[in-house]
Simulated scan of single mutants.
Amino acid sequence: MIEDLPIISINVKILKFWSFILVHNWRRYISLIPSIFLNITQFLDMYFSNEPIDSIIRNVYFLVLWFNTVIRALFLIANRRKFEIFMENLEYMYYEIKKDGEKPIVSLLDEMTKTARRLSIFNLFLGVLVSTGFVLYPLFSNERALPFGITIPGVDKYAEPAYGIIYTWQVIITPMGCCMYIPFTSIVVGYMMFGTVASHYLQHRLRRLRERGDTDKIVMMKIVWCIQYHWRLMRYTTKLNDLVTYIALLEFLTFGATICALLFLLNIVKTFEEMFIVSTYILMIIMQLFTLYWYADELSVQSLRMAVAAYDSSWLDFKVPARKALVLIILRTQKPLMLKVGNVYPMTMQTFQSVLNAAYSFFTILRRMYV
């Protein structure tokens, strides 16, 4: 069962519970419809807003966060079958490595699985922490406020009983939104981490093309297997890129600007409680982006090391046909297995650094203009 695959099981079970993948039931609508309605009222609030700049920036952050949450959920629903097929292939490749029994690779897979599970739990904990900040923020405000700025035409959101109803509604849907947003990132990271393990696996097999007692025919069969496995890895990366590239583009465009705005907000808030909450918002965005770009970069780096592993094999002892096949592997593996943002920018740590640099540059400009 896909939901029992250890490297992604936590996130699959959450997404399955809310009926975004594997099943289709009423829970999907219980979480999605209120979230879409909230996001619409947030856009209306931005259009009609006449609040101070700090409130506007804070509400823009929530608008972007909920917009990304809704888009992720809708994307999962629209591409549910693609995700399920991808996970079925992941399950097959995962247990293929387990069955092969190569101790260094199995140990690496087990360690990566533990890391993926710990990361999923940490992301959920961070999501709970930030969500708690969302709903507690109004308690530290000098005026009556809501966790998320909204505008409902014809309704005075700060008058009773509307205020109590809206506040309760936002408190209830906040953990639902967390379960829509956080597991998507964690499951994609799990996909990337397995791709890294599979790259190590191919490197290991390339370095051991000739073992004691192997004939030239066996060596050639191993080389053919390596070529086929690399082709499977290329398909795996291509399918993964198709599933994440446009979501990554959306976050690339929105989160850079949001980090800039939150840095500016951090510069103008006055109380320690507000500074702590805003800092938590910034930390959440940076952690989400860093995790994605780190493991996408690691996948690319490990795929390039396949060519080195092929060269490190005892190729001098091979016959001419085997040498020619090995050259083919080296040529193919010199092109990295790379995920891209919007099929344009590579998902690497260099791109992540560029996002932070751009956000900080615009922040300094805003700060000078404000002062």
Rank of each mutant, 00 (worst) to 15 (best):
L22A: 07
L38E: 04
Q42V: 12
F43Y: 12
N50E: 13
P52R: 03
I57Q: 01
V70L: 05
I71M: 10
F83E: 14
L90V: 14
Y92A: 13
Y92G: 02
M93V: 13
Y94H: 08
Y95A: 02
D100H: 06
G101K: 08
E102Y: 09
I105H: 07
L108C: 06
F125C: 15
F134T: 04
S141L: 04
E143P: 05
E143H: 14
I150T: 13
T151D: 13
P153A: 09
G154A: 05
D156W: 00
Y158E: 08
G164V: 02
Q170Y: 01
I173N: 07
T174F: 10
M180V: 02
V189W: 02
V189H: 04
Q203Y: 01
R208E: 12
I218R: 12
L233P: 07
Y236H: 06
K239E: 09
K239W: 07
L243T: 11
T245S: 14
F255P: 00
C260K: 01
L262A: 00
L266Q: 01
F272N: 06
E274N: 08
F276C: 07
M284C: 10
V301L: 10
D312H: 14
W315K: 02
P321A: 15
P321Y: 06
I330M: 14
V344I: 15
M349G: 12
N357D: 14
T364Q: 02
L366V: 01
L366Q: 08
